[in-house]
Amino acid sequence: MNLDLSGKVALVTGSTKGIGFAVAAGLAGMGAKVIIHGRSQGSVDAAVETLTTDDTGVRARGIGADLTVFEDVSRMLQEFPHVDILVNNAGFYTQKDFFRTSDDEWEEMLRINLMPGVRLTRHYLKGMLESDWGRIVNVSSESGVIIPKEMIHYGVSKAAQLAFSRGVSELTAGSNVTVNSVLPGPTWAETTRDQIKQRAVEQSISEGDLMERTFSTRRPTSLIKRYTTPEEVANMICYLCSPAAAATNGAPIRADGGIVRTYT
């Protein structure tokens, strides 16, 4: 199986921690030159240092940019005008009652979860098609298929990512460029820990009880009955970025622990 990415340049958005950092580390281990991204330059510098502190020969650079700000995106594209691999991972989620979710909160969800990937893909896909090689992976969610009633605006933003990925993949027909989506399920990352603590206090229950409810109440169809790790999700993303995944294009690939019950 050819997983060699030597000589390839990979940009992973939202990669200072969690799934994004695990993806960056995985791609670097496959030989790619990795670009770490985050909103804060300090967090980016720390992630780059963590990734390059040993003697593995990992090559990583970093950039701090707010992908919802035109000037920041322009600066990023000027500094890194071409990449071979783009992983659109940056995003956020929050639980909010539908009837109390304002128009501004809906627009914020789409502005952060969907539009950065649209802007970066619009730029980088052209270069990939010209060089006839490239990989784009949009990190969506199983919530884009099974829309959660407690965060409908989030689920809709992830469903939009899936539609975007499939549409853009049509532009790659006949080339060696692929565009795919990965759908993680509940994943135990730093932000998850913080959300659990906050919601446990709000609901006056223990963190352990709240975590158990994730799979007994909110996502009872999970087959693994636990949170996935960032590395487990990253394994799938890294595979899709490799030469070995050349025949997979326009596909939503699940790493959700079996939550989605359909077999297609």
Rank of each mutant, 00 (worst) to 15 (best):
K96L: 05
S102F: 14
D104Q: 13
E108K: 14
L110C: 07
R111W: 05
I112P: 10
N113D: 14
G117H: 11
V118Q: 09
R119I: 07
L120N: 06
L120R: 02
R122L: 03
H123S: 14
L125N: 02
K126Y: 10
G127D: 03
M128W: 07
L129T: 08
G134P: 15
R135N: 05
I136L: 11
V137F: 07
N138V: 09
V139G: 13
S141P: 05
E142W: 03
E142R: 00
G144F: 01
V145R: 04
P148F: 00
K149H: 08
K158Y: 12
F164P: 13
V168P: 08
G174F: 11
V179W: 09
L183E: 10
G185Q: 07
P186W: 09
P186S: 09
P186L: 02
P186N: 11
W188L: 14
A189W: 03
R193W: 07
K197C: 10
V201G: 00
Q203Y: 09
Q203P: 08
I205V: 14
E207N: 06
E212N: 05
T214S: 13
T214H: 07
F215Y: 15
F215S: 13
S216E: 12
T217P: 01
R219A: 09
L223M: 10
K225W: 15
Y227E: 13
T228W: 13
